[in-house]
Design a binder for these strands. Structure first.
Lengths: 176, 176
DNA sequence: CCGCTCATGTAACTGGTTACATGATTTA
DNA sequence: TAAATCATGTAACCAGTTACATGAGCGG
C-alpha cells in the first residue's frame, strides 16, 4: 500500500492532475493567492514536497530551459493518480468531523479578558469576519467569471457566514 | 516580548487557567474527548509541551504523591496569564480567515473520480456529516446540562450545519 | 493474582516554517 | 544600469505524531 499523503501533498498532487505538467512555483502561487492562510505556499514546503513525491514515484519531472532559466516540470505518474484517488476517497471520518477554528478555540477563554476588552474583542471579530467575507465573495465572483468551478469558494463563503451568525449569537448572549 | 504560542500551547494554557492547577493528563483527556480530531491529545505532544511552558516560565509545577503514584500539577504563573491574554487577543487577521476543511479541499478534485464514485462520495459525505452533527449536538446538550458554556459547541454545530447545506448544494448542482 | 485500564512518560521521526542565498528577468 | 521582483532553491529548526515503555491501581 502507498504511504498516505498529507493534506498538502494530496492537494499538490490534485493540482498537478488538474493543471498538467507544471513547476513547483506554479503550484506555490496557487496556494499563495488562496484566501485561506492555511495554505502558506512557502518555498521550503513545496520544493522538498515535489522531490519527495518524485522519490516515491508519484510524479516524474522534466527539466526545461527557457532562455537562461532552468526549471523542473512535474507531471502525474499512474501511481500518482492512484495515490490521488486514494487520498480523495474517504479513508476515515476525520474528514467530516468539525474542522479546527482558531476563533472558536479562543472563545472558550474569552472571559479571561477584562469585560471591556471582551466586548471589544467580539465587536472586532464581527468586523473582521465581515471583511473576510468580502474577500471570499470576491474570490467566488472571480472564479465564476473565469469559468472556474466556484463550488469550493461557495463552501468557504457559507462557512464564514455561519461563523458570522455565530459571533452575533455570542454577542447577544454575552451582553444580555 | 514573549515568544508567541501555538494553538495547542495557548489552548493548554487556557485550560490551566480555567481549571486551576492540574496534571498534563487532565488536559490530555479534555483534548481526547473533544469532538474535533484536530486535538489529538497525544502524550507525546502534551508532556513535552508542559515542560516547555515551564522552561519559559509560563507555568510552574508541584509534585504530588498520592499513594504510590507521583504526578506533577501545573499552575499558571503571572507571566503565563500575560501570555494567555496575548494569545487570546487578535494579533493578526488569520484567526478570522476561512479555516481549513479537508472535505472542502477534496471537492476541488472530485471529478478525478469516475462519475458513479463521485456520486457515492457525495452521498456518503452527506450521511457522515449528518452523523457528525449528531455527535456535536449531543456534546452541546451535554455541556448545557452540565452548566458549562456551550457557546463553542454551538459554533461547531453551526459550522457543521453550513457544511451540510453546502454539500446539498454541491449534490444538486452536480446531478443537474 | 491476572489482566486491563490509568497515568506518566520518552525517543525517533517528519512535515512544514523561517530565513537565507542566488541568479534571471523586468521595470524605473 | 540600478532596483525590484521573479523563480528556484537550501539549511536549521521545531512542534506534533507514532510507537514504545513502565509502573500503579483496580475488577474479576
Amino acid at each position: 500500500m502507498v504511504k498516505k499523503l498529507t493534506e498538502l501533498e494530496g492537494c499538490a498532487l490534485g493540482l498537478v492532475w488538474a493543471n498538467g505538467p507544471c513547476t513547483p512555483y506554479f503550484i506555490r502561487r496557487i496556494f499563495q493567492v488562496s484566501p485561506s492562510p492555511f495554505w502558506s505556499g512557502s518555498a521550503g514546503a513545496i520544493y522538498p514536497l515535489f522531490e519527495r513525491l518524485e522519490r516515491h514515484g508519484l510524479v516524474h519531472s522534466l527539466e526545461r530551459t527557457i532562455g537562461k532559466r532552468r526549471s523542473r516540470h512535474y507531471s502525474l505518474s499512474p501511481l500518482g493518480k492512484k495515490a490521488l484517488l486514494a487520498w480523495l476517497r474517504p479513508h476515515s471520518d476525520w474528514i467530516y468531523a468539525v474542522p479546527p477554528d482558531p476563533l472558536r478555540t479562543r472563545m472558550d477563554f474569552l472571559h479571561a479578558l477584562p469585560p471591556t476588552e471582551k466586548a471589544a474583542f467580539l465587536a472586532d471579530a464581527k468586523e473582521k469576519l465581515q471583511s473576510q467575507m468580502g474577500l471570499v465573495k470576491e474570490d467566488c465572483a472571480q472564479k465564476r467569471k473565469d469559468g472556474q468551478s466556484y463550488l469550493v469558494a461557495r463552501g468557504a463563503e457559507k462557512i464564514l457566514k455561519a461563523r458570522l451568525e455565530w459571533i452575533n449569537e455570542v454577542i447577544t448572549s454575552e451582553l444580555k
